[in-house]
């Protein structure tokens, strides 16, 4: 661990002033002898991605991999504004990735033909996971079969028991979390119930979080009764080790986020990026990695089997909520709903 730490320190020291984006974590997977370096910028936690990187490195002898973890907005900023040199950008924010590709910051790779058409945009944005946004409820608040199954039922429950849920509901702070913003905006498109739910949660003095992990932990510990729009993949892998909560896929609809990779224009080692995209698109053939990382691979059959699953569609539509006016209006509405007494 000494080497990665040193590297992280070195990056922070020597390139600190140039890098305005915030590096959360960084690890170097050295190869000996080293023939090439492959730099990934990603929003996925090291803990999640570590097995995938190690498995990939095993297929690429001599490739040193530098894995940098940052937030979705920082990733966008790093590539769009700072032109930071990375070979591959992996993000859970489809809208930001789409905007990067649309605005001309991504390179095309036509080799990845294995992907279904809904998981690939312009041969520039490649999806490799499908992760539902779920409702996580605490066992302390809901019995086994008692949890609400639709958004309307959820609103009903919250309205009926304001005292019980006061300060005990949580959701993403969409102002800081790209994933939260993406889910909230998709919700606002899909259902009128979303704004009512936000109103109700605002009245209950909802707690706002930056990350799914914290919400899941607070639900499991009983600090929260429920958390809305939690990343299902994290919840599922947390459930393997932690007890005390249930994962509910709401039956009216479930937004499914696609985790995507793209090759920035600044990429140096495109061959490694191509290899990584191919490797990720074959994730469904590596159940061991799916289990180890907790990232559900692309699976068209699963989406067709459950009609309430709605994968977010790629396309210029995703740019709409990137619009500065639209975003300002949306956040104002969201704040008006959720932060009523502040």
């Amino acid at each position: 661990m000494r080497l990665p730490l040193f590297a992280a320190l070195a990056v922070a020291l020597f390139s600190g002033p140039a890098l305005a984006f915030e590096i959360e974590e960084q690890r170097i997977y050295p190869a000996d002898p080293e023939r090439a370096v492959f730099k990934i910028i990603s929003t996925a936690d090291l803990g999640v991605f570590d097995p995938i990187i190690r498995a990939f490195q095993a297929t690429q002898p001599g490739l040193t991999i530098e894995y940098t973890v940052t937030g979705t907005t920082d990733l966008m900023h790093a590539i769009e504004v700072e032109g930071a040199s990375f070979d591959l950008a992996i993000s859970s924010a489809m809208d930001l990735q789409t905007k990067l590709a649309n605005d001309g910051y991504a390179q095309s790779y036509t080799g990845a033909a294995r992907l279904p058409s809904w998981a690939n945009w312009r041969n520039q944005v490649f999806a490799f996971t499908q992760e539902p946004a779920v409702l996580v409820v605490s066992d302390a608040f809901f019995a086994k079969d008692d949890a609400p199954r639709t958004r309307d039922a959820l609103i009903e429950v919250l309205r009926a028991n304001p005292d019980r849920f006061q300060g005990r509901v949580g959701t993403y702070d969409v102002r800081t979390s790209g994933f939260g913003y993406l889910m909230a905006t998709q919700d606002s498109r899909n259902s009128e119930a979303f704004w009512r739910l936000m109103e109700v949660m605002g009245r209950l003095d909802a707690k706002l979080y930056c990350c799914s992990g914290d919400m899941i932990r607070d639900v499991a510990s009983g600090k929260l009764g429920l958390a809305y729009n939690v990343l299902g993949s994290y919840a599922a892998s947390e459930l393997a080790t932690t007890k005390g909560f249930q994962i509910i896929e709401l039956e009216d609809y479930v937004n499914v986020m696609l985790r995507t990779s793209l090759i920035p224009n600044t990429a140096q080692n495109t061959q490694a990026a191509y290899a990584m995209i191919d490797f990720l698109s074959r994730l469904n053939q590596r159940p061991d990695l799916v289990t180890a990382s907790g990232l559900p691979a692309i699976d068209t059959a699963a989406l067709q089997a459950n009609s309430s699953l709605r994968p977010i569609r790629f396309g210029p539509g995703l740019l709409v909520f990137m619009d500065q006016l639209k975003r300002r209006n949306f956040l104002r509405n969201w704040e008006n709903s959720l932060l009523q007494d502040k």
């Binding site: 498109r189 569609r313 396309g315 210029p316 539509g317 709409v320 619009d323 006016l325 639209k326 209006n329």
Partner: peptide, 9 residues
Amino acid sequence: LELPYSALS
């Protein structure tokens, strides 16, 4: 302006 979703999609 409230950019309509359909306008771009």
